[in-house]
């Protein structure tokens, strides 16, 4: 295991120290060492946006703390939900008096910890509403969407809801925008290699050399198909063909497209994939109004890519194009 680390048991702590030192203008620590907040949070009179999740997905989740995005983030161990207390402390750090929208992904641990955090928040007099991202198509069949996991589509939900909150949206309006965004987003991943949690020291699962796992999850959850690796163009075709019929997307739709590397796939390969994705979407009559390509939501050093497509309307397109500043996503 060749890694740039000090102590494998303290990688999250060590990362947080570096991140706060590097980005003092965007992010600040709190009394809870596992809660990072926007430097100026809470913003009085604004709905607070909170998220949280396990570490190892950087820049998610903490990298989306910033201007017109997320106000506070609960940080967990690698691939493990933050504590209920951390979610609660993040809610407190984000609350500007207009309530808090907690926008997170559909995983057993996160669901439980957020549920307990909301109990604590109620006792403290905070109003918290949630939207649970479930954009990962391969994780459960159509009709069973509530069981699907949340993946990179969460970023799109933070983006639109964050913009809505920044423009003065009420808690109900922010929640409605977040829900609309994730309800219109579909994602799929392809994994090419496994990844290793430093403290465990051995690969989390196994993908044979020359194989790819279509539909893999962000922690190596099983995909729908393991087969020999195909070209980037063929991967794009498989991904687009899985996503488009599921919503369904229709000819004439304007969409936001987010391609994310899983950690060890070069940006070069992500753009190779994007070229084909853009072509297949165009062939289906879709117009890409917002393209995003990069390492937005990773899984340690896994090789592979995810594709997320969001069906826009005028409201969501406006929010997607609104300015924002954070470690993970900045646009003017």
């Amino acid at each position: 295991m060749n890694r740039v680390i000090n102590n494998p048991d303290l990688v999250v702590e060590d990362m947080l120290r570096g991140l706060l030192a590097a980005h003092a203008e965007l992010a600040a620590g709190t009394d809870n060492p596992r809660v990072i907040k926007r430097a100026c949070a809470p913003v009085a009179g604004k709905v607070g946006i909170v998220t949280g999740g396990g570490s190892g997905h950087e820049p998610a989740f903490l990298g989306y703390v910033g201007e017109n995005l997320v106000d506070a983030v609960a940080v967990g161990e690698i691939f493990s939900s933050p504590t209920a207390k951390s979610f609660f402390d993040a809610m407190k750090a984000a609350d500007g008096g207009q309530g808090v929208a907690c926008l997170y992904g559909n995983y057993a641990g996160d669901n439980m910890n957020v549920k307990m955090a909301i109990k604590m928040a109620e006792r403290a007099g905070l109003t918290v509403k949630t939207v649970v991202a479930n954009d990962d198509v391969p994780s459960a069949p159509k009709g069973d969407e509530a069981k699907r996991r949340g993946v990179a589509g969460e970023i799109l939900m933070w983006k639109t809801a964050g913009a809505c909150a920044a423009q003065g949206g009420s808690l109900d309006e922010v929640i409605a925008v977040a829900q609309k965004t994730i309800s219109r987003t579909r994602s799929i991943g392809i994994g090419l290699t496994s990844c290793t949690i430093p403290a465990v020291g051995k690969a989390n699962f196994h993908i044979a050399d020359g194989q790819m796992e279509v539909g893999i999850g962000h922690h190596g959850e099983p995909g729908i198909n393991v087969s020999a690796i195909v070209s980037a163009d063929e991967m794009a075709r498989i991904m687009v063909d899985t996503l488009l019929p599921d919503l369904p997307f229709n000819s004439g739709d304007r969409v936001a497209v987010l391609i994310s590397g899983l950690g060890a796939t070069p940006l070069m390969e992500q753009y190779i994939l994007y070229a084909s994705v853009a072509q297949y979407l165009g062939n289906a009559g879709l117009t890409v109004a917002v393209p995003l390509v990069g390492n937005f939501f990773t899984s340690l050093e896994m090789m592979g890519v995810t594709l997320s497509v969001l069906q826009l309307d005028a409201e969501l397109e406006g929010y997607m194009k609104a300015p924002c500043a954070s470690i993970g996503l900045t646009q003017n």
Binding site: E77, P82, G109
Partner: peptide, 15 residues
Amino acid sequence: LLEGIGGSMGPLYGS
């Protein structure tokens, strides 16, 4: 347990 360990075990054993 609720404050110290996250994941699933914190809330399950905490409860």
